[in-house]
């Protein structure tokens, strides 16, 4: 459904020179939205992604400042591991303490941000502190595609395959549709949900390292408020907020659509004050459309069942 919407809207907005910037802008939100989609599919939500991103991005800056010669690949590994730990904290609190994710991740949103502020203080690390090869990750292109965007695409494809074709992936949908039934079927609900949170943390960590590569400064406030964009992207991309349905490809397209619209509005010289209102309308439209489609489908299903009887 949304693929069609995107496809009809996109060509209008995509001007050749803007493509690269557009893709670069979308990359980070796309990666975060994939992680968010995994969590939302299990009927949870992760509001702490913005704070995780901030913390890991600052960590990345610190790594380069303290160990100037550190291999870039190692930074990626450390960043993702750091993200995994933060995600695991969320996941453990949610699964072991059996507390709603909304509350837990709202709490860790505050806490991670507080830790980031305490750690960073007024310190910021700038692009100049990082090796050129690292920064060029987000500027070099292959066939017109920025490197980090290719990385994001690879992540989308990888996660999509896992979700669609592996046992663990299918389990996430089952858990999201009906946790009690999933447990009855012998699905390891706790482990899977924990896994989804860790995956979201890892992806937020990855996004954070890319953020450090793409943007100039990383500090105490990096990534503030990003969580709403990310949840919005997933929802616009057709991931049902009550779990059980949606795809990472959809979430990625949702993220792309949102960033495209923001960029397009600027490029079309639409008053910037309208941008946020339009994003709001879009979110509501997306969930309304999904709702109508599912109602329609349910009615058809009922009709055909009635006929079969």
């Amino acid at each position: 459904m949304l693929v069609v919407v995107t496809a009809t809207i996109n060509p209008l907005f995509l001007t050749p020179q803007g493509v690269k910037d557009l893709l670069l802008n979308a990359t980070i939100v796309v990666i975060l939205a994939i992680g968010q989609a995994l969590v939302i599919i299990t009927r949870n939500v992760d509001l702490s992604v913005g704070s995780i991103l901030g913390l890991v991005a600052f960590g990345t800056g610190t790594l380069f400042a303290v160990y100037p010669g550190i291999p870039i690949i190692l930074v990626f590994v450390i960043g993702m591991a750091f993200g995994a730990v933060l995600g695991a904290v969320n996941g453990l609190l949610v699964t072991i303490a059996k507390v709603p994710a909304l509350v837990i991740t709202l709490g860790t949103l505050y806490i991670y941000r507080g830790v980031n502020n305490a750690w960073a203080g007024g310190t910021q690390y700038f692009a100049g502190d990082r090796p050129r090869a690292f920064s060029s990750l987000s500027t070099d292109t292959i066939f017109g595609f920025p490197l980090i965007t290719l990385l994001a695409i690879a992540v989308v494809v990888g996660v999509a395959i896992v979700l669609a074709y592996t046992r663990a992936g299918r389990d996430l949908y089952a858990i999201g549709s009906d946790p009690a039934a999933a447990r009855l079927f012998g699905i390891p609900v706790t482990r899977r949900v924990l896994g989804a949170f860790v995956a979201s943390g890892v992806l937020a960590g990855l996004a954070a390292v890319l953020y450090a590569s793409r943007f100039n400064a990383v500090g105490a406030t990096t990534g503030t408020g990003l969580e709403l964009d990310v949840v919005a992207a997933a929802v616009v991309g057709g991931v049902a907020i009550f779990g059980g349905s949606g795809t990472v490809v959809g979430a990625a397209i949702g993220a792309l659509l949102l960033t495209t619209i923001t960029s397009a509005l600027t490029a079309l010289r639409v008053d910037k004050f309208w941008q946020q209102a339009i994003v709001g309308v879009l979110i509501i439209a997306a969930i309304s459309v999904d709702r109508l489609v599912s109602l329609n489908r349910a009615r058809k299903l009922r009709v055909s069942e009635a006929r079969n009887v």
Binding site: A232, F242, F273, W274, A277, V279, I284, I287, R291
Partner: peptide, 26 residues
Amino acid sequence: LVTALGLPSLAVTIGTLALYRGFALV
């Protein structure tokens, strides 16, 4: 939106969060 259309309030109010703040800017 929540009661007549039966939409989840979490999603609806994330949307109106952006929408109302957007209107304030406008």
